[in-house]
Design a protein around this nucleic acid. Structure first.
Lengths: 117, 117
DNA sequence: TTGCGATACCTCGGACTTCAATGTATAAGC
DNA sequence: GCTTATACATTGAAGTCCGAGGTATCGCAA
């Protein structure tokens, strides 16, 4: 039988993280909880997706990190958007909108396009 | 330097193929051209994505195939949606809408959600 | 004080998709 | 005969997701 393969995030996790950090610095665990809370658990961010994603956005210099103490009095790595990250957020947001629009065009089409050669 | 890595389709190719076939049977090459034409090339379907995708939707019994001769007088494998495929199309369309809506909720949020513990 | 749940970090491996590159073959047009 | 478009296919590299497993601390309750 075919594996279920949820793959809920479809490559949007970096965008979601950058957007979340545009509200202000946060640590990984809180970012994941915020995304879940905002979407009513429609999007779920497992730790096996979260931490690699945080590491790659830092690697690409879209965020910077610093160890601090969380509101729950625990050691946590706080991430802050860099100016390159803010630029990236803008760019990825536009690309996402463009992509969603393109898919919508196909899904809305009542029939095949005219004049295929 | 980080690889560009377009990844335009983000896991929606199966959905796009099923939708395209809901207009009637078609062969792979035509499906790809239709998607590109409908989206003004916003979505591009390379052959290395297309054919594996067609094989997996057939493997899952969402489509059936049959060799015929195309309008261009060439040997071509025509795909037809099965009733399971029609069901899958409906389900995936709903899931896609749900997903897009969830992402929009995060992107539209002006700030972090209230009362994090 | 011992144990548990929540917070918070991390890595590994498997499964999957995308996509460029490469290859085959035929029809039509020049 | 050559080129272009049509039409199929596979391979390998790269990237993402995610379940499973591991570490550690805090606060609380038994």
């Amino acid at each position: 039988m075919p594996a279920p393969t949820l793959d809920l995030l479809k490559g949007t996790l970096d965008l979601l993280i950058l957007k979340t950090l545009s509200w202000g610095p946060a640590h990984g665990y809180a970012i994941a909880r915020w995304i879940e809370q905002l979407t009513g658990d429609a999007l779920q961010v497992g730790e096996g997706s979260l931490y690699p994603a945080l590491h790659r956005v830092e690697e690409r210099d879209w965020v910077e990190s610093e160890w601090k103490v969380s509101a729950q009095n625990r050691r946590a790595k706080f991430y802050r958007l860099t100016s390159a990250g803010r630029q990236q957020l803008k760019s990825e947001t536009a690309q996402w909108a463009h992509f969603v629009d393109a898919v919508a065009k196909v899904l809305a089409a009542p029939r095949q396009p005219a004049q295929e050669a």
